[in-house]
Design a protein around this nucleic acid. Structure first.
Lengths: 187, 187
DNA sequence: AGAAACATGTAATAGGTTACATGATTTC
DNA sequence: GAAATCATGTAACCTATTACATGTTTCT
């Protein structure tokens, strides 16, 4: 259950309405924990019911805009959660199954798929590198800044890894394109 | 919707009962697409209804054991699916939120959490390396074997990346931890 | 006879996605 | 006055997780 705590974190960084939160999420936390506006509204209502945040109607703004801020109970809950052990989520990587399926039933035109993936990861890497160049200077910064930089670097490393992987896969598929010898799979 | 195709792939590699499939899954495909036995039984029933697999009761076996095999329609569906474009799943990495939360509300005892993660990734890496040493010889093998090896290498690279990441994070937390012990927290 | 492993399911719940619904304010 | 954008939600559906339920065979 990370979404409530992701929202708490974002609200500690800056009190916001659900709408603003959704917009900010897309530009930062969503890289590692995406959430739709429906999820965010639902979760904010739960957080308020739990007494972790408080909403106040923003009078000099349009519509029924509500601004949420984190209460002390919410901060404490967040600190407790951070210290809890956290298992990595099980991976779910469709591409790996496709590679294995291709290995099992013979060439199925995976190159196209891999080229798209390669392009996607290159675009994402470029985005991360632009953020890094804009927001961080190497070797300097407070504890908080260094931690935020580290999170970004994880994204950079992951994209770099997938780019290398896609290229390796393309190499194999291109080489072996004609000799379609399929054998039984080991476990 | 990868699970049905993951099951088709496993069944192309070898016809099996749901129980056997679940056991084999745990040792191979589940590294990139985990599934419980409940999911597997449900999905096998759907695959059969769709006419992609056929089950036959295994007479000289215990219980109501049913062996599934892939029909031609299933093979074709699998080939079509492989050629479809596949977006990477959105990441959901709790640890990143914790790092960001720790940056936002101050030190919360993340070291312990990171040490556990580090140990987990080291164990997983060791498992992958053991499989690699057992099943693959570098530079040799059929197309299918090289693709399977590549999938395993992706696992190895990911674990290696997370090990490096955990160490970097610990470095930052340990450094800043000493500082926080001797100096007052800045505003 | 009892335990362990084999084998197949159902039910309840939580989390996430997609589509739909509603209304206010600003801008042209 | 129409369109775009701001702003907050509901409903239906699907997937995945967890817990529960049931019966068989093999081994000791």
């Amino acid at each position: 259950m990370s979404l409530p705590h992701a929202l708490l974190t974002a609200l500690v960084e800056r009190p916001s309405s659900g709408f603003d939160l959704a917009a900010r999420f897309d530009k930062s936390i969503a890289y590692f924990w995406p959430a739709s506006h429906q999820q965010i509204y639902r979760e904010l209502a739960r957080l308020e019911e739990a007494g972790w945040v408080r909403s106040s109607p923003d009078e000099n703004a349009r519509g029924g805009r509500k601004v949420y801020e984190v209460l002390e109970a919410g901060r404490e809950a967040l600190r407790r959660w951070v210290a809890e052990p956290s298992e990595p989520r099980p991976l779910r990587e469709e591409l790996m199954i496709k590679l294995r399926a291709d290995a099992a039933v013979g060439p199925c035109g995976l190159q196209e798929v891999l080229l798209q993936r390669l392009a996607g990861h290159q675009a994402q890497l470029a985005e991360y590198l632009a953020i890094e160049a804009r927001d961080f200077t190497p070797g300097v910064g407070s504890r908080a800044q260094r931690l935020q930089h580290l999170v970004l670097q994880a994204g950079i490393q992951l994209e770099t890894m997938w780019i290398g992987f896609s290229r390796q896969a393309l190499e194999i598929l291109d080489e072996a394109g004609e000799g379609a010898a399929t054998t039984a799979a080991p476990d």
